Amino acid sequence: MSPGYSTAPDDACLDIREVLNRVGDKWSLLVVGALDGGPRRFNDLRRNIHGVSQRMLTLTLRLLERDGLVTRTVFATVPPSVEYQLTPLGRTLIEPVRALSQWARQHRDEIRAARAQFDGQAVNETVSARQPALDVVEA
Rank of each mutant, 00 (worst) to 15 (best):
Q117M: 07
R105V: 04
H107W: 14
G120D: 12
V127N: 03
R115A: 02
A104L: 07
R108Y: 01
G120N: 14
R130D: 01
D119L: 13
T126L: 14
W103F: 10
A122M: 15
A122L: 08
S128W: 01
W103D: 06
A116Q: 14
A129E: 13
T126D: 10
R130G: 08
F118M: 11
G120F: 07
N124L: 15
I111P: 00
A122V: 14
R105Y: 12
A114V: 01
A122H: 03
Q121I: 03
R130T: 00
L100C: 08
V123T: 04
Q106H: 05
A129I: 05
N124M: 08
T126G: 06
S101C: 06
V123C: 08
A99S: 13
I111T: 03
T126S: 13
S128P: 00
A129T: 14
V127Q: 15
Q102C: 04
A99C: 10
R115L: 11
A99R: 15
I111M: 04
S101Q: 13
R108L: 11
R130F: 06
H107I: 00
W103C: 01
F118E: 12
I111S: 02
H107P: 00
F118S: 09
F118N: 11
R112L: 12
N124I: 01
H107C: 00
L100V: 05
T126E: 10
Q102W: 03
R108T: 09
L100S: 14
D119N: 09
R105A: 11
L100Q: 06
N124K: 12
A129W: 04
W103L: 07
A104H: 08
Q121A: 14
A113P: 02
A116R: 09
D109Q: 10
R112Y: 07
R115M: 11
S101V: 02
D109M: 05
E125S: 03
R130Y: 04
A114H: 10
Q117R: 12
